[in-house]
Write a protein that binds this DNA or RNA. Sequence first.
DNA 1: CCCACGCGATGAAACGTTTCATTGAGAACG
DNA 2: CGTTCTCAATGAAACGTTTCATCGCGTGGG
Lengths: 341, 341
Amino acid sequence: MKVGSVSVKDVAKLAGVSVGTVSNVLNNPDKVTETTITRVHDAIDRLGFVRNDAARQLRAGSSRAIGLVILDVRNPFFTDLARGAEDAAAERGYSVIVGNSDESDEREATYLDLFEEQRVHGMLISPVGEVAPRLRRLRERGIRSVLVDRLSWDDSFSSVSVDDVAGGRLAVEHLIETGRRRIAYVGGPASIRQVDDRLTGARVALSEHPDAALEVIRTSALSIAEGVAAGQAIAARPRARRPDAVFAANDLVAIGLLQAFAHARDIRVPDDVALVGYDDIDFANASTVPLTSLRQPAALIGATALRFLLEEAEDPGLAPRQAHYQPELVVRSSSASAPPA
Amino acid sequence: MKVGSVSVKDVAKLAGVSVGTVSNVLNNPDKVTETTITRVHDAIDRLGFVRNDAARQLRAGSSRAIGLVILDVRNPFFTDLARGAEDAAAERGYSVIVGNSDESDEREATYLDLFEEQRVHGMLISPVGEVAPRLRRLRERGIRSVLVDRLSWDDSFSSVSVDDVAGGRLAVEHLIETGRRRIAYVGGPASIRQVDDRLTGARVALSEHPDAALEVIRTSALSIAEGVAAGQAIAARPRARRPDAVFAANDLVAIGLLQAFAHARDIRVPDDVALVGYDDIDFANASTVPLTSLRQPAALIGATALRFLLEEAEDPGLAPRQAHYQPELVVRSSSASAPPA
DNA sequence: CCCACGCGATGAAACGTTTCATTGAGAACG
DNA sequence: CGTTCTCAATGAAACGTTTCATCGCGTGGG
């Protein structure tokens, strides 16, 4: 549909110089004399020239974009992580393209394809499926990856993660110490590593307290809606068979549980059931009952991962590194008071 | 760092055909005989060939990516809107690149530059600054735009929006009808159109009830933190000078207010102060006190805008269209009961 | 006065696709 | 058997940059 877009050639003609010179004005201004710089810039302004990034990347071989694949855009933890990465990228003149895998390995693969076609400079990925072989192949072609929110399966990739096992353990230890004994873990699917690790941590805590019991309630996703469904299932049970504490795999699920419990009039939080979430999103502190949760440095994770990636892309000999942060338990009302007598 | 990437040329050589034929296998399979198709596909698989999108766009003149500039990634309303647009784009073989202007016209301009350099197929934008001239210039060059969550300033652009004036009016009418008289509007900056329109709606409602008063409390952004600050300011006043109802410019601000009020022990919601938010994000129903809010069809807005954009890009003669949805008042506990005696 | 040098500018090559005019080989037809 | 027609396949041009070897020219040294 379009009228000729303005190219360097047009700029060169108007400024009375060669195309090479225009390019130098844009990329190596120190190689060009002062007067030509202004002349070229005048021409650029007059014509409204905008660089064609496609041509640029074609020549350069790779773009200044970095792909980021996250599990769930609707989870504030991941948007915070993305923000951290974006800000760090912007500082260094890169931009971040975000893809949302929605916990589906199919969508994940689609984004990997897309990013490879775009010849991104590198990728940050919070993996769902079996992507290791794929990432290795990409690396052979010069596209590096850094894993986010996930420890590398071996030492061949850098990763930035948080100790989910420790987090699960902290959560359940806290519940046991405040007197709870019938604990339920709500989360799923089990294929998500974070879900599994937090459960492992919970089991570790349990193993040190033989008088406490752990029940696992699966959800098909980590969303508010799934939390509501699980909460309704719990509320439908006779009181005696309900847990006296619930550890939710993340805050979205916890918020859903809270809503379901509020609806069922005979479950008070924390009196009847204590509740601990995970991620400490902004809304955790603003929910019906302020939520005890495990805080993770989301923005820092994104920023660190991005830094690792760029450093490795610059110096391919660099050995993979693992940054492993510790989560922090933030106690609020949802687990504050004593259990029922 | 990079080993030679695989190109069509390599595929052609291995398959024993010309590059043009490889291209045809990829883009016009019906122009090619069955046996060559399989031969080429074999070669592609064997070499792990992946199309270079940069070269492709360079030739084509524009990419299959669509730029989306939103006001705030941390606001679930906008992430829902983005999801709607992404899903609609994916259906048609396009992808969406999201830029977050953070309510800053500087960042907005940066993203417009970036998207123009990328020669995006078109843009969806929730404008902050004075972008009309810029968008007009883009259109002359063949890049169309559709405004989201914002009525077009004139009839030259398509837009998909929600009637914010009506929403503001509904909110305040509801507060007045339930007996409130000293109403505060909390939001800002005034430069954001939505903030201003909702205030206008509030004033309309006020004008029909001379015995009610409206006070405007400005914030510098629509965030939880700003809501907390405004709430603390209100809580610091003597009881007599506090409003008996607050209409917040969006749910994030409302949630912040709620937190501040909960902290100040002598403000109960809704008894002392009724509260109405805007957007009806998922968390509105899960907050300390479930929040009365104005629901907007976020995903539908994104999907519709994307559809408008593609239709216009396909048929440049098409006249601009305006989709204008009505918001819906969702009453919950934060405004449910009667005002103080 | 000549030569070498430095420096700003030049112009063509290269990046990996898609497109399009052209070729070549059969098939159909008279 | 010769001619025309069809259809698959070819190969070169074009897209808009960046890069790099080269050039021209004014200067300072010998």
